[in-house]
Nucleic acid binder design. Sequence first.
DNA 1: TACATGAGGCTTTTT
DNA 2: GCCTCATGTA
Length: 685
Amino acid sequence: MDLAAATPLNDAQRAAAGFGDGPLLVVAGAGTGKTRVIEERAAHLLERGVAPERILLMTFTRRAAAEMLERTARRHPQARRVDGGTFHHVAYRIVGRHHRALGLARPPTVIDPDDAANAIAAVMERLGLGRDRRRRLPRKQALQAAFSRATNLRLPLAEVVARDLPEFAGEVEALQRLRRAWAGYKLERGYVDYDDVLVMAAKVLEAPEARDRIAAAWSYVLVDEYQDVNAWQAELALRLSAPHGNLMVVGDPRQSIYGFRGARHDKIVAFADEVPGASVLHLTDNYRSTQAILDAANAVMGLMEDGGHARPLRAAARPAGGRPRLRVVEDERAAADVVADALQERLAEPGALAGHAVLVRNAYQSVPLQGELLRRRIPFAVYGGLRFTEAAHVKDVLAGLRVLHNAFDELAWLRLLQLLEGVGETTAARAFADFSDADALAATGDADPLARAVRRAPLMAGRIREGLVDLVTALRDAAGAVSGGGAHSVAGAYDRLLTWYGPVLARRFPGEGQRALDLAFFRIVVERYEALDALLADLALDPDATRQATSAPGAESGEGLRPLTISTIHSAKGLEWDHVVLLGVDDRSLPSPWAVRRALATGDAREIEEEKRLLYVAITRARQRLDVVHALYGRQGMQRLSRFLDDPGVRATLDVDLGGGRGGPGDGPAAGLSPDELLDALAGE
DNA sequence: TACATGAGGCTTTTT
DNA sequence: GCCTCATGTA
């Protein structure tokens, strides 16, 4: 970012930023400053006197939107008031505000895929689909994923099942029934999952009059990362800009890496055809990386099916630089050591650590490195993979907060009740049915299920009474703290819930101290909120606000060092570092076995293409230096280097180091392997 | 009947 | 780590 800010705009960028009104597509390769073009465009509009609230900026992560606005605000303080956020946030705002048009009594509660899967399991049970031994249905997450895919791709469920769950093709009818019942379950209880948010927003915007009324709030719509929109998101952007046509979308089809969740990278290709009067601009000058890094990226681009037509990236600002280095080491431990050694050497330089990122295909591939960094007290922050708020213990406490927010939140209640000793699914369901029984509530005048639970708990059958009383007492106290209002009310409620949860935690996860520390850490997040609904909405729609930050900054070698970044390649999209290390680029990870299997089985190589793009994204994150560290042995034995890196054209852009240096401290069976053997391994024998 | 517990299987990527 | 399934227990 620093560099981009220092470089004057080139002609193409200036043309894009200052482009007149009307639909505009900017096709911008990696590192060509496309984000900067959007910032510039926003600044331009503000200079023309457009009110900031009338500009709508949509991206995929809130962090990206916030950073863009923050940088723009340095030139134009008003930029902070530009409206924007993720597609899901914008969609949820529309749904929340217009819930009555959808026949909903109140703004819905957002549930995450994990809750959605649990709800599906509950509905399955209710339909009697779970009990039948003869008919086996997919597991709940697989069901949730299939339903979600069908929605995002706008495909009939049968097609998704045929493709993703072929062994259940005979059960399509039951699955359709289940999907319908599940939709009913959500509507009844006022839940929406991530997909529903987009679908409902589209529904609200369907009628032209309503659409124009809602869209009138903005005069300009700016969209980043357009290559990753799915059909619903593209529609959202188009509908919100329909009245004025001032829609600017920016993206790079070669960085489309979210096909698995319905991204349609053909949408960006088709934009000019689908949107009447759209102009198209191309950016190819790269301001981020050295030419040596771009050579590798271009070589990977050459592997793509349409690679021949692509314009190669040119370094417009950096010197040639050194070639990316491919380093082969014995195993994952050795890889972790090599990376940690290199980082340790730079600890003394202020800020150097934060200029590094380690990128992986799968979140678990960074685990050995995390262990080594912890041991050496090198601070790091992890992005991607299991998010903090998805950990079981965090969800437990959050369930408590959710009940305070909405005492009718069945999923939250069930989760809490099942934490009690002697309470399983059945008892929990019965208890909630009792607490939330509408007739009983009306008869006794209890305001909500919590009030009724407080009265009922002491009367329950012996075995679970004690635990139940503890729980509802804690909830009641916490509810009292919240209703008291004030700066610390949410944190106060959280503390009360933690007091209750402590013993539960000890019983549920014996001997795991980290989880208690997590919850203490999480309080820092909670403290920032004065209102419970804001906290819960943020957590539901934007879990990355609380991504796990590990390796306590208090570690004494740390001294407030800004941490190294460890990230999945997906989560690294749009970001850049001086020095990037790619870990785990073996042929069983990139391309992923799923993509390979599908290509072999059906001849459909689209997912393989996406894996190439993923590697392209990873390489182009680096400004000055790129290292690839390949371990010869992984958890599944010997592993070849990724076929993409092994391609002669790509290999030629790399410096190959077969582990002549350190292989890892002391434990060097690497020394037992001859260079020839290593070569054979590299070439896949 | 409902819950607890342990073995075994599987695990991509994310809003 | 997480889910499912089978088996033992109140």
